[in-house]
């Protein structure tokens, strides 16, 4: 019970922070953390296969792709204003 309440609070906090922070990299890291916590929540809800998919796709692959996108954006900005 305490576990579920703490998990829900952490999920809400990381989601709000990821949506409202102005720093792109920080938003991506918070998104990855949100994905990991969401996988824990699915595991808690007796859905281990969805937890597996959430951890692999939600946190892992899209996290890496978003990090790559942030890197490209920074490089473009650096080329435009040296």
């Amino acid at each position: 019970m305490i576990f579920d309440l703490l998990l829900a609070a952490a999920l809400l906090w990381s989601a709000v922070q990821a949506l409202t922070t102005p720093d792109l990299f920080r938003a991506v890291v918070l998104f990855i953390v949100f994905g990991l916590l969401m996988a824990l929540a699915w595991a808690r809800l007796d859905a281990p296969d969805i937890a597996l998919a959430e951890a692999a796709i939600g946190a892992g692959l899209s996290g890496a792709l978003l990090l790559d996108a942030v890197g490209h954006l920074r490089q473009k900005r650096r080329e435009r204003s040296p």
Binding site: A39, A51, A55, A59
Partner: peptide
Amino acid sequence: AALVFALLAVITGAAFVRRI
């Protein structure tokens, strides 16, 4: 699922070091 969690850390960290 825990096995996938352990695998993920490498992908995220390598993307961070190489790209950002």
